[in-house]
Amino acid sequence: MLRRIINWFNKKQQPQPIHEKKFASMIEMLVKTEAHEISCNDVGDALAEFAELHRRGQDVKHLMPLVHQHLEMCPDCREEYDALMAALDAEAELYS
């Protein structure tokens, strides 16, 4: 128990370290931060169209820049986009 208390105290006193790559990723997010960004719900509404355009080889970064930017900023929406693309791959495989 004493050891656990000492460890807890030391942990509280020492700053947590951060990996350089994770810090650089955070700085990259700051670089890409815009004054106007759209919400997760807005992205959800546009994601199907964005995914179909992307699959057709369209330049989605320029056609739908706000959605593209949000996907670079939001890990939850990015995961949902990846899952949607996997769903479209599965659909092409199962039903074409």
Binding site: G44, A46, A48, E49, A51, E80, L88
Partner: peptide, 22 residues
């Protein structure tokens, strides 16, 4: 109607699914 109906459905499904899994 900006996409196929099924693509729209998948968008809803993956959001529900990933939210539950998270």
């Amino acid at each position: 109607g900006n996409s196929k109906f099924t693509t729209w459905v998948y968008t809803i499904a993956v959001r529900i699914g990933l939210s539950k899994l998270r």
